[in-house]
Amino acid sequence: MGAAKLPSSFTSLYRLFLRTSSTAVLHHRAATRHVRILWKPTFREAAVVIHKLQSPTLGISEKEQLERWRCLWELRMDRTLSLLITSAQSRGLAHRLTRNLSFLHHGFQKYQVHTRYSITRYWDPHQQEYKPARQARSYQIEAKKFDGQSWGALEETARMAEGKSSLTLGRMQFRLRRA
Rank of each mutant, 00 (worst) to 15 (best):
G2C: 02
A3N: 07
K5R: 14
L6Y: 04
F10G: 01
S12A: 11
L13P: 00
Y14D: 03
Y14K: 08
L18H: 00
R19N: 13
T20Q: 07
V25M: 03
H27T: 08
H28R: 10
T32K: 13
V35M: 04
R36H: 05
I37Y: 03
I37M: 12
A47P: 03
V48G: 02
V49K: 13
Q54H: 11
Q54C: 06
S55G: 06
T57M: 12
K63E: 14
E64A: 15
E67F: 05
W69D: 14
W69S: 04
R70P: 00
L72G: 05
L72K: 14
W73A: 05
D78A: 07
T80C: 07
Q89E: 15
Q89A: 15
R91S: 08
G92T: 04
L93R: 13
N100I: 04
S102A: 15
S102C: 11
H105W: 04
G107F: 08
Y111W: 12
V113S: 13
Y117R: 06
R121M: 09
R121C: 08
Y122K: 15
Q128M: 03
E129A: 05
K131G: 01
Q135K: 12
Q135L: 10
K145A: 08
D147L: 06
D147N: 11
G148R: 14
G148N: 13
W151A: 00
G152I: 06
L154W: 03
L154H: 07
E155P: 02
E156K: 15
T157I: 12
A158K: 13
K164F: 07
K164W: 01
K164Q: 09
G170W: 10
Q173T: 07
R177H: 13
R177F: 05
R177D: 03
R178P: 01
R178A: 04
A179N: 11
